[in-house]
Design a protein around this nucleic acid. Structure first.
Length: 668
RNA sequence: GCCAAUGUAGCUCAGCGGUAGAGCAGCCGAUUCGUAAUCGGCAGGUCGUCGGUUCGAUUCCGACCAUUGGCUCCA
């Protein structure tokens, strides 16, 4: 090996390769062998995805990616974003729009694919997608090599000044001045496509044998800021094989089937009506059963945990919300005021001000703390019309709300008790896919979005962080997501179609107790201000039930099922016995219906299955003679000739235990 | 709120310048049947709303309303 300035690369097996300075991933592959050089698609350099065109730093560990590795799909997705941008530019050129009319913003890789945000001369519609896709396939077929080159900042800026692309210019301006600005070019400068891009990419467009598909066009604000221009975003997905793509599309179809809006209609849980208004759901009888069950659960748990129940009106005078700080911090999320006798009233977006007033109804002693006031309060929030979604984001909601007033010393244990309450609920519902998010304020928002008390913010945020860390509750932090009155810890879940929602929430409030002048008399006779914890572990009825429908795909556990047992008499002569069975079940509080229609048994069974009734009891001659039932169940194996008394007991037990699945009944 | 798409019977959908059609659900009748759709009949719609173009609009155009997808996973 000759000496001099060298770049050394370490291979996964520990081999050290000496290379010329500035050697790229491609040079590494070539040094290993011509076969690999040909098969190489990208690199992993020191554990980070990179590509063949990028120089390898001295001493780096380099792994060459080929088709056999999973990671290369990321490169393909990124390259596809460029291919798509080129295709769109070509399509626009064919319509007579010059390249200066197609301005490109960003085109990143996302979970299953990629997107590109573009400023286009005309809006794209769904019909454009197949055409763009066709062009993309042609570009892939042309097998244009991707070339990487680096430009100094001035040259890079110059490139985007004529024709001007304000988005790229802004991106460059925001990058550190010493950062190398890399570009990728596929094809010729004139006919091909060049983009400011940090990479990594495939070596050529022809290396994209991945199965891809353009999914949708959507508007997207430049940098997610609604005060900035709206761009057009085209989404695409890409996978290594047709099978993976098919699987992904199949999953999307499956997810649609468990969408709570579809299930909610099919299972007659709720309905939305134009005459009532957007985001104002109506609970149908079957849904109301679920609401009642959830509420009973919460009351039971809260009573055990030392909560006291209170009730408050739906609206109040303006003064209350001025005092609480909802006006002005929260006003745009509230329904507008109604005025009567020169007094302005607001419908409540939250229950807290009322609970504070209940606290304040008489002097409080430290002996009463922690005081926990709970209410399934009905609130109204004027959510953006574009944000509404089935039951998951609504304008009328009933919250599993409570406010815990405590001393600073009691804070940690109260806070933890609430977290444990969440976990208890999650265990009950079998929710294991969630994460906790600690939401903090942003300095810029003080006085606008948030109460302007910087030192209190920092203190409470630290207090919450400490409790979480000490008790090893895993969480992520999110700046600028706090409530206006204090930091919060949220539990995030995903809906069937992958949208993220806050389920449970637990907020610390240092501001409102002060604003309301809440005090307690401490042991030493001093008056002190309590801390307030807002908590809603079961979220709202709306969101929880929306979520549970999707979580269980409509197959509710026995205790939650609107109709628990459906009785199918085989012939009319079994009706009397059916009524007897129904009465026995009803006497134990089991929700039972008889299907007495002049319908065939098969038809009745089918209808019961479609409504996802947990137990369908079939009654014929055999059952009638033996005081027995035969059932098919969505919860346990089917059984025939089970003694009626034992069956009733079996169901009552499972219901009382709020079992998620019912253990098979003992027969024999 | 903004961008795009969609809006026909309770539900799922067809039709598309000449006064609306299917399946399921509903109602009536027949059938009384052993584990996912019994047969026949009847009834049901101001084609989201309001305007415009036209001899004529569910169909074309516009506004509005609602629903759906999306609105940083940063070059």
């Amino acid at each position: 090996m000759p000496h001099g300035a060298r770049t050394q690369a370490i291979l996964p097996d520990g081999t050290r390769l000496d290379l010329a300075p500035g050697a790229t991933g491609a040079d590494v592959a070539a040094a290993i062998g011509p076969g690999l050089a040909k098969a190489a698609l990208g690199t992993v350099v020191d554990g980070r995805l990179s590509d063949l065109a990028t120089p390898v730093p001295d001493g780096a560990t380099v792994r060459i990616l080929t088709k056999r590795d999973e990671e290369w799909i990321e490169l393909a997705r990124h390259t596809l974003a460029h291919v798509m941008a080129q295709a769109v530019r070509e399509a626009m050129a064919d319509e007579g729009y010059g390249p200066e009319r197609v301005r490109l913003a960003i085109g990143p890789v996302i979970e299953h694919g990629f997107y590109y945000d573009m400023d286009l001369p005309r809006p794209l519609g769904p019909d454009d997608l197949p055409k763009i896709e066709e062009r993309m396939r042609r570009i892939v077929k042309e097998d244009l090599p991707l070339e990487r080159f680096v430009l100094p900042r001035d040259a890079a800026l110059a490139r985007y000044r004529d024709p001007e692309d304000p988005y790229k210019l802004e991106l460059i301006e925001d990058l550190p001045t010493d950062a190398p600005l890399s570009f990728y070019r596929q094809g010729d400068e004139g006919t091909g496509f060049t983009d400011l891009c940090r990479g990594p990419h495939l070596p050529s467009t022809g290396a994209v044998p991945a199965r891809f598909k353009l999914m949708s066009v959507a508007g997207a604000y430049w940098r997610g800021d609604e005060s900035r221009p709206m761009l057009q975003r085209v989404y695409g997905v890409a996978f290594r094989t047709q099978e993976e793509l098919d699987l992904h599309l199949w999953r999307l179809e499956e997810a649609k089937k468990r969408d709570h809006r579809k299930l909610g209609q099919e299972l007659e849980i709720f309905t939305l009506d134009d005459d009532v208004g957007p985001g104002l759901p109506l609970w149908m009888p079957r849904g109301t059963v679920m609401v009642d069950e959830i509420e009973a659960l919460a009351k039971e748990m809260e009573t055990k945990a030392g909560y006291k129940r209170v009730r408050s009106p739906h609206l109040s005078k303006e003064d209350l919300f001025l005092k609480s700080g909802h006006l002005p911090y929260y006003e745009e999320d509230m329904y507008p005021a109604m005025e009567l006798d020169h007094v302005r009233y607001f419908v409540k977006p939250m229950n807290c001000p009322f609970h504070h007033k209940i606290y304040d109804a008489r002097p409080r002693s430290y002996r009463e703390l922690p005081l926990r006031l709970a209410e399934y309060g009905t609130c109204y929030r004027y959510e953006d019309s574009g944000a509404l979604m089935g039951l998951m984001r609504v304008r009328s909601m009933q919250m599993n709300d409570a406010h815990i007033y405590c001393t600073e010393e009691q804070f940690a244990s109260e806070f933890l008790a609430v977290i444990h309450l969440y976990l208890e609920y999650f265990r009950l519902f079998g929710i294991d896919e969630y994460f906790m998010r600690l939401s903090l304020h942003a300095k810029e928002g003080l006085g606008k979005k948030y109460v302007d008390e910087p030192e209190l913010w920092l203190r409470t945020e630290e207090m919450v962080r400490r409790v979480l860390t000490e008790h090893e509750v895993p969480f992520v932090e999110a700046e600028d997501e706090a409530a206006f009155y204090g930091p919060k810890i949220d539990v995030q879940i995903k809906s069937a179609i992958g949208r993220e929602f806050t389920l449970a929430t637990n907020q610390v409030d240092f501001a409102q107790p002060r604003r309301f002048g809440l005090t307690y008399v401490a042991e030493d006779g001093e008056r002190r201000t309590p801390l307030c914890l807002h908590r809603a572990p079961l979220s709202t009825h709306e969101r929880l039930i929306g979520f549970l429908l999707e979580h269980f795909a409509g197959d509710m556990p026995l205790w939650l099922a609107p109709e628990q047992v459906r009785i199918v008499p085989i012939a009319d002569r079994h009706l009397t016995y059916a009524e007897r069975v129904r009465d026995e079940l009803s006497a134990r509080g089991l929700r039972t219906e008889i299907d007495a229609r002049s319908e065939r048994m098969n038809g009745k069974i089918r209808d019961a299955e479609l409504l996802k009734v947990p137990y369908t009891v079939i009654l014929g001659d055999k059952e009638q003679e033996g005081e027995a039932v035969s059932f098919r169940s969505r919860q346990e194996p089917d059984a025939n000739g089970v003694a009626l008394a034992g069956f009733v007991e079996h169901l009552a037990e499972a219901r009382d235990a709020r079992a998620r699945q019912v253990a098979p009944i003992a027969t024999g």
